[in-house]
Design a protein around this nucleic acid. Structure first.
Lengths: 170, 170
DNA sequence: CCCCCTTGGTTCAAGTTTGAAACAAACCTA
DNA sequence: TAGGTTTGTTTCAAACTTGAACCAAGGGGG
């Protein structure tokens, strides 16, 4: 079958998206690096932990919500641990698992860093969007994300009992 | 001034965006890596060169359109040059500049790789969007990109004679 | 219980990215 | 036109990412 190339309108969207996403991630990374000494991803690790029950999460679960590989998370947590912002803990239920725990210092850094980060996200993104556009963006992105999530397992249509989720709170 | 935190709707959008952009870039990188032996960025270097007059571009101009640092581009071009897909050429007009030139082999690889790439972009992104959403995405992203472009120079309002653009075709 | 398959994590080497120098050519301007 | 600034590019080390390989521990059948 011959390739279905992108229409001019699709090209316009695709190029704009690539430019915007690169620029956006750059500003955010730079801001967080300067004021928090860590890249965006590491910040998100802290943020996710801070919202988790008891400030701890299984490595695998954390990786899944962040949409990154376990290997990448291992590196991030190791670094954050070295800086004292996160601590590893063994899981009692399943001796294979390990939990990442946000330390008090980690929480402090997060609280100190959050305002500047939010301000950046706001001025770079939301201040330039109308309320309708915020909704449109959310709609578009949840659709894309859901699509890309559920296709990995098998090649065909999803037939799983709608995604299991293991838990491991002590 | 106290922080203007994100509204629930903004949070929803922001989280969805982060998930989607990460997943999207992952699929595309993986596909391109497997079928083309290069990451997305490198493909974009080839693609941009292929559309340039005479298939050549100044490093700085290329970096600017790709929204990446010159340093990053240097690395990419060096690697592509090692693989024979791109060649460097000196600029006659300005002896400081160097041009990246798409070789015939580079063009061939690009043509061989493009269909699979487009198919991935399509199935991951555009097949999940309505025509209106494509327009919305384009609108949103051009707005963001424009905003982030023009704020870098100075801190205040732009006062430049609307962005110069040097050219250097032989 | 033992074997096999799956799951949770880490490790390791190779690849990529970053940001701060370093350099060199071009461009003022006095 | 010498000297200082700007512009175009590369270099380098440190940081981060990737993917494959590895090592446990859990979970069934037999």
């Amino acid at each position: 079958m011959t390739t279905r190339w992108l229409t001019p309108e699709e090209q316009r969207a695709w190029r704009a998206y690539n430019a915007a996403s690169r620029l956006l991630e750059d500003v955010i990374d730079r801001q967080l690096q300067q004021e928090g000494g860590m890249p965006h991803l590491f910040y998100m690790v802290l943020a996710n932990l801070s919202e988790a029950p008891d400030r701890r999460l299984r490595m695998t679960d954390l990786a899944e919500t962040l949409k990154i590989t376990r290997s990448r998370l291992t590196y991030a947590v190791t670094r954050l641990e070295r800086d004292g912002l996160v601590r590893r803990e063994d899981c009692r239920r399943d001796r294979r698992s390990s939990l990442a725990v946000l330390t008090d210092e980690g929480m402090a850094v997060l609280e100190r860093t959050a305002p500047g980060h939010v301000e950046t996200v706001r001025s770079a993104l939301f201040d330039r969007l109308t309320p309708e556009q915020v909704g449109q963006l959310a709609e578009i992105c949840t659709g894309i994300a859901r699509g890309l999530q559920d296709e990995d397992p098998g090649a065909g249509a999803g037939d799983l009992p709608w995604r299991r989720r293991s838990s491991c709170s002590p």
